[in-house]
């Protein structure tokens, strides 16, 4: 299996379309600036009392997701192009599982906590 010329449209995750070095560096710079901005906003919002307090957690989560997106696009070069289909599909499947595991666990455990007494009251201590 040598690196023969590949006819189809396919791109490795992390690889970009052919660009010159200047354009590629510019991509990372844009990503870095955006990420720094989003991070700064997150840290600012977390400590501020300028905004309505209950909106802070929502804002933090939205900012985190946005920043993850920035990383994916500018550092990992995941795009919606046809050459990235497999990469995006794998990512989507992974995210679905992450969502199910985290969301399901939190939901199930919240219901258990609401319905059941705390463990230290129902379990005897070992001898």
């Amino acid at each position: 299996m040598s690196d023969q010329a590949h006819i189809g449209h396919d791109l490795a995750p992390g690889d970009e379309e052919q660009h010159d070095v200047g354009t590629r560096i510019l991509g990372y710079v844009v990503g870095l600036v955006l990420a720094l901005l989003l991070t700064a906003t997150s840290f600012f919002i977390a400590g501020t009392d300028l905004v309505w307090q209950p909106s802070i957690p929502v804002a933090l989560i939205v900012l985190a997701i946005a920043q993850m997106g920035v990383h994916l696009v500018f550092f990992l070069h995941i795009t919606t192009g046809p050459d990235n289909t497999n990469n995006v599909l794998a990512l989507a499947f992974g995210l679905l599982v992450v969502f199910l595991v985290v969301g399901g666990t939190v939901w199930i455990m919240a219901h258990l906590n609401a319905n059941m007494p705390p463990m230290d009251q129902i379990m005897p201590k070992p001898m």
Binding site: L96, I108, H111, A114
Partner: peptide, 21 residues
Amino acid sequence: CVISFMVWLHHFFTMGAGPDV
């Protein structure tokens, strides 16, 4: 493949997650 990730609680129905779950 996808739905198999949405059924795991049926192994512990009796644990007390309640009727909705």
